[in-house]
Design a protein around this nucleic acid. Structure first.
Lengths: 208, 208
DNA sequence: GAGGTGAGAATGAATATTCGCTCTCAGCAT
DNA sequence: ATGCTGAGAGCGAATATTCATTCTCACCTC
């Protein structure tokens, strides 16, 4: 057995198969939920036998873990581009719109699934924590910067505001799944106007 | 066999037992979730054999259905007393505080469980719909009345506002379960101040 | 032909639901 | 009173199904 790096093509194949399994699992989980999805269903979706599948993931739980990790990493990345938007609130609106959009339909469907599961599943909750922390920090920085630019009233406590905005974001993800007929994405501009009113600096006697 | 009404004590016993089973099931569901709870666990919690339990409910699903119906009916009732509060926003804050409070700990724990389940389970979603509709109407009426009283800017579209408030409410219920360490209930007064800013009528040159 | 790869049957645990038996007790005939 | 009877109530073992996981062996590529 050589001590050098193993054959690259072997690793390629492995990660290729893993990706295939994860994609199939995401489909299934989005359709039937974590509990409603059996390994057999994932196998069928991936056109793969259980024997083969278990060569790449040791358990169903590990598949869920891998997916959650990927999804939440992607979600945290959203906030990185907040400061490139013309205004902070426009940026936030875009973030939410992206989360609710059809593009990430599976991600959007998985959102509530993951949250609900994390309430009970300690492992999952711990895996989510650092990502939550990171997005909290990013969002907070964006808000403080917005305060310095005069877009947001600096009197408001930034941590409270971060919490309120996250509550609203998660609430929207949930509602969009639960009541799709209410067409929540269409209301986003109206929501943005209301949020702007909430955050705007008080216009007290600035006139000369 | 007499044609008259059956013995009252018999009906009493039936509904008494049903209540006992439902109480046990709520305990279990709040602790382990719908999927993590087996009929055996409910039986143990209710100190009852499966044979006896199945005499009162035909299936696990029917137990879940009965609980959801009860919980959501109770939840809708909350909004009925909105107009008795000193101000609308105080009233809303109280509603949320009640939902998150330890008093209704089981109800609060069940909230996210029910929402997550309703995303997949069509039966459940349909059972929830009329209650959602009712609370939408109640909340909307309260908001319109708040507009007439000058507490809320009448320029705001009431339906959009109802949606935003419900999104926030559900988001808070979810977050309170998911991140209890953030002590969301302590932030409610701060949230109320922000919401007040959002809804207050614009103070445009009212001075002479 | 040897080692990695995969197919698919087999396994064993968990779980919702059913079944057959017993127990209790009210009503009634003796 | 006493014992009979039948129906509702309860028990818990049995059943049938589902599911995650493992095993065995064939295949394919080097």
């Amino acid at each position: 057995m050589a001590l050098g790096a193993p054959d690259v093509s072997v690793l390629d194949h492995r990660s290729e198969q893993q990706k295939r399994i994860l994609a199939a699992a995401v489909q299934c989980f989005a359709r039937d939920g974590f509990h409603g999805t059996s390994m057999q269903k994932i196998c069928a979706e991936a056109s793969m036998s259980p024997g083969a599948l278990y060569r790449y993931f040791p358990s169903k739980e590990s598949i869920i873990g891998a997916i959650v990790e990927g999804e939440s990493a992607e979600r945290a990345k959203l906030f990185e581009f907040l400061d490139q938007a013309p205004s902070l609130i426009d940026g936030l609106t875009e973030c939410i719109a992206a989360l609710l959009s059809k593009d990430s339909i599976d991600c959007a469907k998985l959102g509530p699934e993951i949250m609900a599961e994390a309430i009970r599943n300690e492992k999952l909750r711990e895996a989510l924590e650092p990502v939550e922390e990171e997005s909290h920090v990013l969002l907070r920085a964006a808000l403080v910067s917005g305060m310095e630019k005069g877009e947001i009233d600096p009197e408001i406590d930034p941590d409270t505001l971060v919490m309120l905005l996250k509550v609203m974001g998660d609430g929207m993800i949930l509602h969009n799944q639960l009541h799709p007929q209410w067409n929540l994405p269409d209301r986003l501009p109206a929501f943005a106007i209301l949020v702007r009113r909430m955050l705007a600096p008080e216009t007290k006697s600035t006139a000369p």
